[in-house]
Amino acid sequence: VAGLGAAPKMSIYSASKHAVIGLTKSAAIEYAKKGIRVNAVCPAVIDTDMFRRAYQADPRKAEFAAAMHPVGRVGKVEEIASAVLYLCSDGAAFTTGHCLTVDGGATAI
């Protein structure tokens, strides 16, 4: 979700994520008439191996990561996979240039 707003002390990371969103929208327009859909999934903190390695040394950081989501927890890999499957499905046939936020409400704050 760093591409959807500001990420203090992470300006380069945030800029790269903003670039992904811009690329997604531009590519979607460029390829729409060819029947190619281009979308992005914008997750917040997800419980991955990388997350565990980064936060296992300091449980307070993991608690902080969970607290930044209004749902009170970090996301699950399966929840991101479900979003990707939807965007790849016929149910999303009229969806292109969209950045699907899967963030437990973090960007709603």
Rank of each mutant, 00 (worst) to 15 (best):
V74F: 01
T96K: 12
G97K: 06
V84A: 13
K76M: 09
N39L: 04
L4W: 07
N39S: 00
S82C: 12
L87G: 08
G104R: 07
V74R: 00
R60T: 04
A7I: 00
K61C: 00
E78R: 10
A7T: 03
Y13W: 01
S82G: 14
K34N: 08
G97A: 10
V71Y: 08
V77Y: 08
A27H: 07
T101G: 03
T95W: 07
T107G: 05
P70Y: 10
S26T: 15
G3Q: 10
S14C: 15
K25P: 09
T107P: 02
I46K: 02
T101Y: 03
I29A: 15
G3C: 11
D58L: 02
M68S: 11
K17W: 08
T95E: 08
P70G: 07
A67N: 15
M10P: 04
L100Y: 10
K17D: 06
Q56L: 02
M68N: 06
S82N: 15
T24Q: 14
H18N: 08
A27V: 08
L4Q: 15
T95Y: 10
A81S: 09
M68L: 13
T24E: 12
A83Y: 12
Y31P: 06
T101V: 14
E79F: 09
V102R: 00
G91S: 03
K17S: 10
A62D: 01
G105M: 11
A2Q: 12
R73F: 05
K25D: 11
S26A: 15
M50T: 03
A6H: 06
P8D: 01
S26Q: 15
A67E: 14
G3R: 10
A65Q: 02
P43D: 00
A32S: 13
A44K: 05
V74N: 01
G3L: 13
S16R: 09
S14A: 15
T96P: 07
T48E: 02
A19H: 08
A6Y: 06
Y13L: 01
P8E: 05
K76D: 09
S89W: 04
P59N: 00
A40K: 07
E63L: 10
G5V: 05
L100I: 13
G104Y: 06
I80A: 02
G3H: 09
N39P: 05
A67V: 01
K61F: 02
K33C: 03
A83D: 12
L85D: 12
V77G: 13
Y31H: 15
G97H: 07
A2N: 11
K25A: 12
V1Y: 08
D58F: 01
G97T: 04
E79S: 03
I46E: 00
R52K: 11
F51C: 00
K17T: 08
K61Y: 03
I36D: 12
A7V: 02
G75E: 06
C42H: 03
A106S: 13
A81W: 05
C88W: 06
E79C: 12
A57C: 05
G3T: 13
S11D: 13
A7P: 09
I12G: 10
A66M: 13
G105V: 03
A28F: 04
G72N: 07
G72H: 06
I12D: 13
M68T: 08
F94A: 11
L85N: 13
T24N: 14
D90M: 10
Y55E: 05
